[in-house]
Design a protein around this nucleic acid. Sequence first.
DNA 1: GTGCTTGCAAATCGTTTGCAATAGC
DNA 2: GCTATTGCAAACGATTTGCAAGCAC
Lengths: 138, 138
Amino acid sequence: MEALFESHKYLKDHSIKPSVQRSAVMNFLIHNRIHPTIDEIFTALSPSMPTLSKTTIYNTLHLFVKQGAVRMLTLDEKNARYDINTSAHAHFICKRCEKVHDIFSLDESMYVIPCSNDFEIESLEISYVGTCNTCKSN
Amino acid sequence: MEALFESHKYLKDHSIKPSVQRSAVMNFLIHNRIHPTIDEIFTALSPSMPTLSKTTIYNTLHLFVKQGAVRMLTLDEKNARYDINTSAHAHFICKRCEKVHDIFSLDESMYVIPCSNDFEIESLEISYVGTCNTCKSN
DNA sequence: GTGCTTGCAAATCGTTTGCAATAGC
DNA sequence: GCTATTGCAAACGATTTGCAAGCAC
C-alpha cells in the first residue's frame, strides 16, 4: 500500500485528481523508470485491469504532461515515451534494444546559447544514439 | 543551370545515381535550408512537377539518409524533418511557428560523456524548444 | 443530478508496402 | 531487354476524436 500512498502524493503534488486508472499509471511510472511508451504501459497494466483502455492511458498521460508531472520524450520517429524524471538530464538510446538510459544531468550553463537574444528557451533535449555494451557483447 | 550542377555534384559525392526527381529534391534541400518535412518538399515541388508523388520523396530521402547525404531529425512527434547540413550542430525549434534554426556546432568534447565505457555513441541530437523573437513580438 | 472520467469505435495522419507502369542504359 | 525508379492504391500503426455509458461528490 506504500506504493499507492506514493503515487497519490505524486498526483496531489501536481493537482491531479486521483482515479484508479491514474494511480495505476503513476505507480507504474514511479516504479518502472524505463521511459515507457503508451503501449508498454498498457501491456503492463492490462492483465490486472482488464477493462483498461489505451485511450485512458493517452488521456492520463496528456493530463500528467499538462500538469508537469511527467515529461514527454520524442526520441525516435516511432512512438512517444514518458519520463517521470522531469529534471533536466540527457538520454542515451540504444539502437538495438531501444532501451533509454538517463546519462547525466544538465546544469544551467547548457541553457546559455550563443544567440540567446533571438530565442526564449523553454526546454532542452539532449539525446545520444548508439549501442549499449550489453547489446555489443551479444 | 548552376543549381543543377550543384545538386548533381552533391549526389555524385554521395554515390547517388541522379534522376529528375532526385535532383529536384536535392536542389530544394540545398537552396532551402529550412529543415523541411516530406510534405513541405512535396508542396514546394509539386506545382512544377505535376506527376511527382509523395512516395518518391519518401524513397528519395531514405536513400539520401542511407548514403549520408542528409540527416533525419526527429524534433517533434508529428513528422520527420530533413537536414542537408550533416555536420554536428544543435537546433532550436519555435513552438509557435515551428521553424527550426541551426544554433551552434558541437565540438568533440560533447561526445565525451561520464559513462562512455557503457555506451558506444554514434550520434547526438541537441534541441532547444521555445519561442523565437519574431513570434514573441507578434 | 451534474460534471468529470472512462472506454469503445471510428477517424486521422504520417509513413510503408505491393505492385504495375515507366524510364534509362 | 534488363534493371532501377517512379507513383498509384492499399495497408499500417500511433494518436486523436466523438460520444455514450459509468462514476463520484
